[in-house]
Amino acid sequence: MSAAAVVLENVEKRFGDVVALDGIDLEVRPGTVFALLGPNGAGKTTAVRVLTTITRPDRGRATVLGYDVVHQSARVRSQIGLAGQYAAVDENLTGRENLRLIGRLTHLGRGTANERSAVLLDRFGLAAAADRPARTYSGGMRRRLVLARALMHEPRLVILDEPTTTGLDPRSRNELWDIVRALVADGVTVLLTTQYLEEADQLASEIAVVDHGRVIAQGTPEELKAGVAPTTVVMTFDSPDAGRRAADVLAPLSASPPTVEGATVELSAHDGPGAVIEALRAVDAVGLAPSTLSLREPTLDDVFLSLTGRPAAPEQPPADASDDLVRTGGGR
């Protein structure tokens, strides 16, 4: 029995020629939020499907709360709650019926299933819509229903596959984040996948960056961001000439040489807001004023750039990325 809540050990999974998981390793400590961060096609959903016993690994070993996903799959299933990437709900059933069905199928007993549905509908702001068919729900409501469903049988491990990638406005996203935080406060372990560095940063205490079916970097959000291009300050001036002059005076402030494109200058700074003040002073001193100014927080792309020297692989590789074709070609 391992102390880790989730273990993937050299897990491999192929679909025909496509290597979805290429010997992935990871370990999730109980009671924490762990983020699998990676671009589309990295293998996140496949890892989730292996851990939820939906698909069997071709090679390697995977355990959930000490139980092997292949040999003790029934045990694994009774301990986990999955909120899948596509928020599949039973459209013709009401929210309440969706939850009760899962309650029955997770063997809660009718009374408990009814109580638990009511509690969760209430907690996730679905009480008013509880008796409407789920097909009338908005994207945010669906997400919350899917999450409530994953929690019906009070699982010790909750797996969220890209919980906020599609169909969520910023407010719904923040609500969902709050729910995840509350779960961990209750002692549940959460494994979530995401394409957003910000989301992983906000929620997780540990992040694994996945690419082409393997972990290419792992650490706390701070550790990962430390190695990454810091905040970018973007300033646009009146003319390319002004841009060039600004870049000259800004160079000493930037962590790496500023880039100039037309009248737009970008500099990277470790302390975003502080850098803005200094940059404004510096350009003001030579009589320049930017016409626009913005800050760009690091993204998954920046992490990839710093880790691999290239941006996150697009799902459809460009025609000239021939060395990538071997691995991602044939994918859908």
């Binding site: 939820t52 299933r77 599949a88 997770t106």
Partner: peptide
């Protein structure tokens, strides 16, 4: 197609059901 079967497969229910 809607992913509902996939969801059932992650539940501790009898697969034949």
């Amino acid at each position: 197609g809607k992913g509902l079967i996939e969801r059932f497969r992650s539940l501790p229910m009898a697969p034949s059901a």
